[in-house]
């Protein structure tokens, strides 16, 4: 079985990270598995986990009253799930549900926050990897808002 550290080292999100930082982060890591249909987290719950998806697919959902849940985004292999652990008040904004069997590494948010606070270079490394993901997600969201395939696109 691969070590947590080598799994993290080979994940696209951590590609090229200095070994010393990888070791620091591994200290906050553990393996998790979600069955299809299982909720990973729920909106408004405290957000203390950062999921590094190894395989599978997770749907981010909103459920308006009286309507079926709407999936607004899916994340899958090689991607990451959740950044609410980084930003106060550390609460999830959506429901995250595994669409299929999903294996991930979960990093403890409190642990990560502490380590980033102690070592700003680590903090900078993490943020400069996280920000592009946030940016791309925002770009994708804007495109979804445009409803470009609509009848009057």
């Amino acid at each position: 079985m691969k070590s947590l550290e080598s799994i993290l080292a080979n994940h696209p999100f951590f590609k090229g990270l200095e070994p010393e930082y990888l070791a620091l982060i591994t200290g906050c890591a553990s393996n998790v598995k979600f069955e299809a249909g299982q909720f990973i987290y729920r909106q408004d719950e405290e957000a203390n986990s950062f999921y590094i998806i190894r395989e599978g697919k997770v749907a981010l959902e909103v459920c308006p009253p009286g309507k079926k849940p709407i999936t607004v985004q899916t994340v899958s292999d090689g991607e990451i799930l959740g950044w609410a652990w980084l930003i106060p008040p550390y609460h999830w904004q959506f429901d995250a549900q595994a669409v299929e069997l999903t294996r991930a590494i979960v990093l403890d948010g409190r642990c990560l926050r502490t380590k980033c606070g102690e070592d700003h270079t680590l903090g900078y490394e993490l943020l400069s990897r996280l920000l592009p993901v946030v940016g791309q997600t925002m770009e994708a969201t804007r495109l979804q808002l445009l409803d470009i395939y609509g009848n009057n696109d």
Binding site: K57, K68, T74, A140, Q144, Y149
Partner: peptide
């Protein structure tokens, strides 16, 4: 494949098509 929005019936990707490029 990916769709802009879907309900639970859909087991595939949700998001715009360019998010598929990296996958």
């Amino acid at each position: 494949m990916t769709v802009d929005t879907a309900d639970r019936e859909w087991r595939g990707n949700v998001g715009v098509v360019n998010t598929l490029v990296q996958r």
